[in-house]
């Protein structure tokens, strides 16, 4: 079985190599940038990161009219100058004409970003990067995080809370958890998969499950940031006591009828100090070990 697998891998790799060699001469040729007329003025924009973006009017649909108007204005004098024609910027639909079949963009039509009116060009700079330089304070976070933060200021602020995912520090990125092209209405798989694709150690399967953890991590955690330890959306003990009552013959009490004995801070301060396997246990109904 192992030999067969290695053989298949070599054949696959060789086949790909052959395809690439066949295509190599084309890749080495000078790109036929058809926007020469545009480049005369738009020198910076001539730098595209992709060959298929070389035709200006494939994205700027009225580029021809814009160029003609510009030429006419150059020739005309005084009040006889014809009006400017501003080159249109590409709508998402123009980008999707080519990119809709990409695996991550085939559902962009129903993506949250699209519904919010965010265009491809709002994040993607085909001529120059949207985020060119970073201040010293954002260097660890990186350009992707800085790009998301230009709109999501409310989320960026949460990454300055006492407890937060280390996004600004470089330990995580926005796109590590969120696919900006995806739709919540088109997610597949477990409800907790967004978190357990990194936090596999808590996904189990557990013989004894803690229901809120099995259903949705956000029942207890605020993933962007929280004033509380461990990204808890409410500090302990109230995080736990919103669902649980405190048994009067445990947790420091003797089970008297009054049911109202004092419970000290040693018990109340950290429920998970005793119920340590709070996400689920292999052997204990009470999630203690």
């Amino acid at each position: 079985m192992r030999r067969l697998a290695v053989l298949l891998a070599v054949i696959l790799g060789g086949a790909l190599q052959a395809g690439a060699w066949a295509a190599a001469p084309m890749a080495a040729k000078a790109a036929p940038i058809k926007g020469d007329q545009c480049v005369e003025c738009h020198k910076t924009e001539a730098n595209t990161s992709h060959a298929f973006h070389g035709e200006c009017n494939s994205c700027h649909l009225n580029a021809g009219d814009h160029a003609k108007a510009h030429e006419a204005r150059e020739k005309a004098k005084g009040s006889a100058k014809p009006p400017k024609v501003v080159a249109t910027k590409p709508e998402s639909a123009e980008c999707l004409a080519c990119h809709e079949s990409d695996k991550r963009r085939m559902h962009f039509a129903i993506a949250e970003h699209n519904k919010a009116g965010v265009q491809c060009r709002d994040c993607h700079g085909n001529h120059t990067p949207k985020v060119k330089t970073l201040n010293a304070g954002m260097e660890k976070g990186g350009k992707t995080t800085a790009l998301c933060a230009t709109c999501h200021q409310d989320v960026l602020a949460k990454f300055s809370m006492v407890s937060h995912h280390p996004v600004k520090e470089g330990g995580a990125t926005c796109t590590g958890c969120h696919d900006p092209h995806a739709s919540k209405q088109a997610t597949l798989g477990a409800a907790t998969a967004q978190c357990t694709s990194c936090h596999q150690a808590v996904r189990g399967p557990h013989a004894f499950e803690h229901p809120p953890a099995a259903e949705d991590c956000k029942n207890c955690h605020d993933p962007h940031g929280s004033p509380n330890k461990r990204l808890l959306s409410v500090a302990q003990p109230m995080q736990c006591l919103q669902c649980h009552s405190v048994a009067g013959n445990r947790h420091g009490q003797a089970g008297t009828v009054s049911n109202a004995q004092r419970i000290t801070g040693a018990v109340l301060r950290d429920c998970s100090s005793c119920h340590g396997t709070i996400h689920g246990s292999s052997a204990d109904q009470h999630l203690r070990f």
Binding site: M238, L241, Q242, S245, V246, A247, G248, N249, R250, Q253, G255, T256, V257, N259, A260, I263
Partner: peptide
């Protein structure tokens, strides 16, 4: 939220 207790375990 309310802080609730019970006289024994549930």
């Amino acid at each position: 939220s309310y802080y609730l207790s019970s006289d024994r375990r549930r």
